[in-house]
Design a protein around this nucleic acid. Structure first.
Lengths: 227, 227
DNA sequence: GTCAAGTTGAGGAATCACCTCCACTTGGAT
DNA sequence: ATCCAAGTGGAGGTGATTCCTCAACTTGAC
């Protein structure tokens, strides 16, 4: 889907790519998807080039910055996330919607670390635009479940990225041997999320800016250091 | 405690250090404690030297490897952990013991990333010896709570390090702004740990070797790469 | 006063990511 | 068939970072 054959990046006057160049562009995107999936944004453009079987120069010519490559790679995947969030908001039971959102989005992140990095990327650059309405939808899913009385009342939307952080760390470290390990801890957390389980006091919720600051420390920077 | 004034590292015939050297040794250990507390094992010996106000050469002379320095720094701290685990095993209620162990050990790790790295270090080298009976004690605490019926029966000792991993990631990323952020998620997890909360199926527990493999990926290597 | 023990920190070596540049190849318009 | 703008490859320069040595110097203790 969204798979238009021609340039993606908006209103540029550029003439269509030569056939071989177009082929390479697609190879690069496919390779980048794979490489990002395992190494996340920490992957280098050199990595991508080797994986794609093209020279580094070619990658840099087509995608001068890692950010542009990321945008090209994840535009489609992001649509899947949007669709998921919409489905989650449309379930009959708000609790079921929340569980759907959690299990499926964490599963996606566990399988594709690049997607995780993108979801946890905070407003640097244009990438967040890719996320579209996802944040708002996710917040709505949480608030609906809270209103329904099935989710513990002290759970906040800012907790969602932190849960992603924790579980993706499990997925990263156990990934090679037990790709499903994160499910165990997701289940544990979900059991703590039910209104009926809430016995401890969660204390003050994290502010948005606190979470943003935290996220910058768990996603590799897209730009090289200092220049 | 354990604060003997002379060399720690076993039966070497070395004559006592000169007075200035002894002073420097102590400075180095104190500085290392601070530096490890914030950067964990990722801190470099150069860092430590600068912090201690001595030349790098001095650090390398006294502690040829980072491992030796770590051992010197954390011998005492580790005793605190052993004491905690013993207290946790001695509580009247097994559940209270488990909660004590969890809250206090995670708090220690949140305050001192070096301690975290050490606790999550897997048998490379001699470091695990420092941990003494901690692993066995922790296992006993968990099994006692399970037998008591207050801890969900599908929780396993191998889950403990993974919980440490998740929460220390929160502590690391939020540490500067909200050093207590991890408490929120610890509370959430504890609420999911009660036998009464267990509704989801945790699935197959992680094997010890799986956890060991995971842990190697979340502690910076003590030795430099390749040599 | 002597000198072994200790100190120092500049700097060499190794690694790594980033990215440019230019000699070479190729698609496609004519 | 010819031509050349577009495209390609990848060796290698740049700069950051870490590790650790070593030779000239300082100092404690006898």
């Amino acid at each position: 889907m969204t798979g238009s054959t021609v340039p993606v990046t908006a209103a540029d006057e550029t003439r269509p790519l030569r056939r071989d160049a177009q082929r390479n562009r697609e190879r690069i995107i496919a390779a980048a998807h794979e490489v990002f999936a395992t190494r996340g944004f920490a992957a280098t453009l050199d990595d991508v080039a080797h994986h794609a079987g093209v020279g580094v120069g070619t990658v840099y010519r087509r995608f001068p910055t890692k950010e542009e490559l990321v945008a090209a790679v994840f535009a489609d995947r992001m649509q899947d996330v949007v669709a998921l969030a919409e489905r989650a908001l449309a379930t009959e039971s708000a609790w079921d919607g929340l569980i759907l959102l959690l299990t499926e989005s964490v599963r996606m992140q566990a399988r594709d670390r690049g997607l995780r990095d993108l979801l946890l990327t905070v407003d640097k650059s244009n990438l967040p635009a890719l996320k579209g309405r996802v944040p708002e939808l996710a917040t709505a899913v949480i608030e609906r479940a809270r209103a329904e009385g099935t989710l513990r009342p002290d759970f906040e939307p800012t907790d969602l990225p932190m849960i992603f952080t924790m579980l993706s760390e499990v997925a990263r470290t156990c990934g090679d041997i037990r790709p499903d390990a994160y499910e165990r801890y997701l289940t544990l957390i979900i059991d703590g999320l039910r209104a009926g389980s809430a016995r401890g006091d969660l204390g003050a919720p994290l502010t948005i800016s606190c979470v943003q600051d935290a996220l910058t420390k768990c996603v590799p920077p897209l730009e090289p250091r200092r220049r």
